[in-house]
Design a protein around this nucleic acid. Structure first.
Lengths: 408, 408
DNA sequence: TTGTTTTGTCAAGCGTATTAACCAAATGAA
DNA sequence: TTCATTTGGTTAATACGCTTGACAAAACAA
């Protein structure tokens, strides 16, 4: 089948049914038939027919009466939350998160644990399988009740292969058939995506980036990555590795990175760099007592510790966070000129520091980016916090589930 | 009217007529009805009806019999070149190019002269008006025969305003209503675009980037800019300034740039930087005779002189070109990781040096970019040479002309 | 109350597609 | 050469999804 394409668009049956369903999904508080008609430039009569179809299939339901408009009050439409479940899995470098939601994306149960993706696919996927079954048993459900599962991984995903290729922070996972493996385990549709891309989708659908047509999401965790959402679609590039900003060079001849090059963004602003810099600072502090120096052994200081110390007022920790923000700012200036986003959302553990981390970024952007690109640009922290990626995985799973149900 | 959008696509009447027309336009050597049907996933019967409509409106014509396929030979379809003319205008920082073509984009007449965009809009647009009328008189035509005119400028274009905002190398043009001004002068539809974006379109339609879904075109002239074509559509970003890579920082605390910052790509690899470096080299050569030192006065050495000297074998000139390629390589590595293009086409005057300029870029890309992003990436020079941008302007003008004719 | 505005529904009609049959023109094997 | 096969293009009947225009329902304003 022909790929969707600007010049030669895919000619899809029922395309407006999908479009209406998307509008209902992603409009906060629901939407009326008349509003849908206005948004899509269709007649109210056409929308009535499409909505009736969605109503009898129980994909959509009438919720409450809408706001007073000067005439008859509209009946608001929302996704029918019943009739299925989906799961979102966020595989991080050092953590693992799972969400179970209904079809309206309302979170029912959640699991989050520390994790080591570096243990390789067999060990990790077995652990994930255990946790997924634990999540289901908490909800008194089985895999038969689950319509689809979205999975996020911290590496470049090749969609057709259902695998990651040459992922710098996922040693041992290169070309491992993740999607096929999980499909065999769980027997339901699996959507495999990059974690930063899912973060972008999550924040666009339910977080800080709602309704933004040109959204850049930057994930600063153990690794650093970006997800670019253009008019509601992920931009993946030619081979699926767009937005892999962790290994762009920021400082020529800078510190050695895991990827083998020097001065990569990830080696300057990633969670590992932050932790290492904090460990070094404690070693060189000659026993002066700080928030950080109380952690023992020194080698166990993590970026999470630095984050909390900074928030508790530890000056050295704040300095380290601000320094990371500074380096990220340099990278973001380049991204702004190239991508010209309407909004930048910063997520991942380090972004929990709020303005301490965001201010150096905003300063660089204003000083060094093209005026044309920054004058209407907003730079904010992710509002879904730790759930950006897993909610993005939920969005992908729901897309599969709802489009399957609406084609029956 | 609602904007075209991935999730909520524009619902356009006759959309398949436009799609078929595009397929005919951009398929080299023409295309048969059966092939169109296969490409679009429509029935042959539907295509027959659409093509008949285009035939009676004389937008399309049957050209020759197609290749032997094992059955009845197909009748190839091509754009009917008669019935109208369009003009493409390439406003460069230091040159001006105009093309007159028929509806099949075949060049009929051409003018190219040196130019100073820095003289400001009134002076420049008056000069352009003179040349456009000269071009028409050469062809024994008047403006009444011209369906549409495409114009390219070396700065960030805001489409709705028909103007450039804060363009670093177009002093005096900020917010000047170029499109309105030209429409009043010429009384026909004007399409105003960024020059690098038009270069991308030109190379995609008729040059090195044919059929590439993720094309990055990089223009290295007096300024440096990039145009990103995603599935046949220009990516402009939120405010139209995407791809303005001339002012990303390459060397911290590097040479001062016209934009006020230090170490910008343009200040290291642009035409002005190349010329200045050559002038400096001649001054410091203590009278040693080289290709370059024969130019008098030294201050008049241009990047074009360096380019020709390098091709004639001047070692110093070659060194300067290679150095510029090196800096551009650093920028391109970042672009590859962020954008993940399927192909990079390098255009503009400096790119005429071919491999001398391209090799440093290819080397950087292979050494420093993510394997996932470079393994299928091609980096080549523009095949339309000086015409990349003006042919892109022709494509835009033809889009206006053909879509107007097909809606009658 | 009546008139106005807005939402939602219905029936008639139209435009654009599909399906299935057909002819046209080429190939290749008997 | 003849005839089955393959591919290209056309035609007529039909299906589907949308628009149009009318209308009822439900709110507000005079």
């Amino acid at each position: 089948m022909h790929q969707p394409n600007g010049l030669y668009p895919e000619l899809k049956k029922n395309s407006n049914k999908h479009t209406v369903l998307n509008l209902v999904r992603f409009t906060p508080g629901g939407i009326s038939r008349a509003d849908i008609a206005r948004h899509l430039g269709l007649s109210r009569a056409a929308i009535t027919a499409i909505v009736n179809d969605l109503l009898v299939n129980e994909l959509v339901r009438e919720t409450v009466d809408g706001p007073v408009t000067g005439g008859r009050r509209p009946k608001m439409l929302g996704i029918n939350p019943n009739g299925g479940y989906v799961i979102g899995v966020d595989i991080g470098a050092t953590h693992l998160g799972l969400l179970l939601t209904n079809l309206a994306a309302q979170v029912l149960y959640e699991i989050e644990i520390p994790f080591q993706v570096s243990l390789g696919p067999e060990v990790c996927l077995a652990k994930i399988d255990d946790l997924l079954r634990e999540l289901l048993s908490k909800a008194d459900l089985t895999l038969d009740h689950v319509d689809a599962i979205g999975v996020g991984v911290p590496g470049p995903v090749v969609e057709e292969a259902g695998a990651v290729i040459a992922p710098p922070i996922m040693p041992g996972w290169d070309h491992f058939p993740i999607q096929t493996h999980l499909h065999k385990l769980w027997k339901c549709p699996i959507s495999l995506n990059n974690d930063a891309e899912l973060g972008a989708i999550g924040e666009w659908a339910y977080g800080a980036g709602r309704g933004e047509d040109h959204l850049l999401y930057i994930k600063v965790g153990y690794g650093v990555g970006a997800g670019l959402l253009i008019e509601g679609n992920i931009y993946r590039g030619a081979t699926g590795s767009a937005g892999e900003i962790g290994h762009i060079t920021i400082v020529d001849q800078g510190p050695l990175c895991t990827c083998g090059n020097h001065g990569c963004l990830e080696a300057l602003a990633g969670g590992r760099a932050i932790a290492e810099r904090a460990q070094l600072a404690v070693k060189n502090s000659n026993g002066r007592r700080t928030q950080l120096s109380q952690i023992d052994p020194i080698e166990s200081i993590s970026s999470y510790d630095v984050t909390s110390a900074a928030r508790m007022g530890d000056l050295k920790a704040q300095e380290i966070i601000a320094e990371a923000g500074n380096y990220l700012g340099i990278a973001i200036v380049n991204l702004i000129n190239v991508v010209n986003p309407g909004m930048i959302v910063i997520g991942g553990g380090v972004a929990q520091n709020g303005d301490l981390f965001l201010e150096p970024i905003r300063r660089s952007a204003n000083e060094r980016s093209l005026p044309a690109a920054v004058q209407n640009l907003r730079i904010t922290a992710a509002t879904l916090e730790r759930r950006s990626t897993s909610m993005g995985a939920i969005v992908q799973a729901l897309t599969i589930s709802l489009s399957k149900k609406s084609n029956q």
